[in-house]
Design a binder for these strands. Structure first.
Lengths: 154, 154
DNA sequence: CTCTCTTTGACCATTTTTGACTATTATATA
DNA sequence: TATATAATAGTCAAAAATGGTCAAAGAGAG
């Protein structure tokens, strides 16, 4: 069995037992487990992905950190549904429909919906239809993650 | 956990809580935080930039000082200033500084700031630096218009 | 034996912190 | 008044403190 990764995963989940958000020091953690620091990244990438209901944020440099945030199960389900719905490219109408839905579910406010819609408009941008759809998909997916992250933090 | 710079930033902002203008002694402040005086310059440069809505003035020599001034502007002025600041292309850090400023001015909420920042990230997008900066500028300007439109409606 | 998942390590990127050297200005002194 | 001195602040590059990436080696499961 792949003990190390599982142990690290368990350790992090224990830390999160009561809180939905914790802060780690990558190097400390690696030292604690006597492994390479990049091992921590591996665990975060494989066990704490968005699909599994987690969001990871970090900052480098002096007093840098790694934050792990848990989103609720139902939120995470919806999030992954929406993300796969968006896919690699999405046209403007479908994007707007998704934004509208988020608004109706009260997951975002009217202002947020408008900002999102404007971000996803992609007109005035010198990109051909296909490239535009791909770009829109990327922006929308980034924003979706953000929306759900916000939900957990409030 | 919080970095020295973060603490100094917070300290200065507390001093400015009610006033739009304060005066500091660089060396005193450095001593208070037990750090190199140039650390203060670092904080001023990274956290109190014009993009973030501050102006810093100083004078050397006997009874020298450092003044920090928060820029205040009417909304409509601000919109045009920001739009021309964004221009036809803008890098990520400057864009984030502007978003941060909108948040500090309470013109957008934290959630909105995050959505905007994510929309403007442009990573994962197969675009070269220059094209990316142009795209970012376009998205940001669209969103700015939206933000200020929303303001008028509330 | 092969395939996949894990683990490591060398190299990269970012942010903060410090220090040596420089520039400016008020004030005391000749 | 001219000059020296002390008191400030600024600059810039190096060092320190983090975290990230990616490809290759290792280990287990079938």
């Amino acid at each position: 069995m792949a003990a190390l990764s599982d142990n690290i995963e368990r350790f992090i989940k224990q830390l999160m037992d009561e809180d939905t958000k914790i802060e780690l020091r990558r190097n400390e953690l690696a030292q604690h487990f006597g492994c390479a620091p990049s091992q921590i990244n591996y665990v975060l990438a494989t066990r704490f992905s968005v699909d599994r209901g987690y969001i990871v944020e970090s900052r480098r440099g002096g007093s840098g950190y790694v934050k792990v945030i848990r989103i609720t199960q139902s939120d995470s389900d919806l999030l992954s549904v929406l993300i796969s719905r968006v896919g690699d490219e999405i046209d403007k109408d479908s994007a707007n429909a998704i934004i509208h839905r988020l608004y109706e579910l009260s997951l975002i406010t009217l202002n947020e919906a408008r900002i999102l819609a404007s971000a996803v408009r992609c007109d005035n941008v010198a990109l051909s239809g296909r490239a535009c759809d791909m770009l829109r998909a990327q922006i929308l997916k980034n924003a979706l993650v953000q929306v759900f992250k916000n939900l957990r933090e409030d």
